[in-house]
Nucleic acid binder design. Structure first.
Lengths: 146, 146
DNA sequence: CAGCATCCAGCCCGATACTG
DNA sequence: CAGTATCGGGCTGGATGCTG
């Protein structure tokens, strides 16, 4: 499959005539790193792009929170999705989970150092969306009603 | 539904005792803007987070490209998904589409000014992932084998 | 060449019920 | 309180075939 445009196995490696002009040199271009379908890069972008992660990161950037608090403060999230989101973020080393052996049980989630470093990027993203939201809304309306 | 934690209809508005400390003041906190499930913010994040958009934006940031070229250079994308991705980006005003009345037809895609402004953010994201990919891989491996 | 239409598999995610 | 288990609908996205 995909024979149409991957007939040459060295296709990706051989694709050099148009060497990057504007893409920063020190960042591997996505298309060089993603042919192996699903490795790191993609997986990480999924985490950032998924429905709840950014919300959770945003909340945790204000300090540690318990499961229940997160559940309250992320509007509309289900227990299941909160659990999954936290597990994923934990797996990626972005949040840490601390369970206290008490009754009733208490579990606190907190950004790790890695998570903290992600914060700036999340802010940048949020800022871009905020700054350009009007333009986007306008563009969408224009597109939908043309 | 969600009666458990949305018994108070003014819940979101009334939720002020923990005013933001670290979230930048000039950026509306996601949790304030997303209760209305699916409006702008979310929709835009979806665009950035989805499987192909960032790839396409990355390629177009190097200059205009025709449909076929994009199809070649984004490894593994199907015609359908490329079309859908481009339509979405076009709708959001990030990409412009120019069809030339020739035979065979030629269609060129290009970043708009808005798209250009997004580029910096995409770079920031790519940079973060690049810079921290090792940590993430390590964390994942640790998590998976613990 | 560019792309739409159709079909269909798989998974994402929400609802619900149950546990340590 | 902080989860896990299970079920099922809907949407995502891939394959294929057909048009201007």
């Amino acid at each position: 499959m995909f024979a149409e445009h991957t007939a040459d196995p060295d296709h990706a490696a051989a694709r050099t005539p148009h060497s990057q002009e504007t893409w920063p040199d020190d960042i591997p271009h996505p298309c060089e790193t993603w042919p192996d379908n699903g490795r790191g890069f993609r997986e990480t972008l999924d985490r950032i792009g998924d429905k709840w992660s950014v919300l959770v990161i945003g909340l945790l950037s204000q300090g540690p929170l318990r499961f229940g608090m997160l559940h309250q403060r992320v509007p509309g999230i289900s227990q299941r999705m909160l659990t999954l989101t936290l597990r994923h973020l934990e797996r990626d080393g972005i949040v840490s989970r601390t369970a206290y052996a008490e009754v009733p049980p208490r579990v606190e989630y907190e950004l790790t150092a890695l998570g903290e470093s992600l914060r700036a990027t999340v802010y940048a993203l949020a800022r871009w969306v905020t700054d350009h939201n009007d333009e986007i809304e306008t563009a969408r309306h224009h597109y939908d009603t043309r």
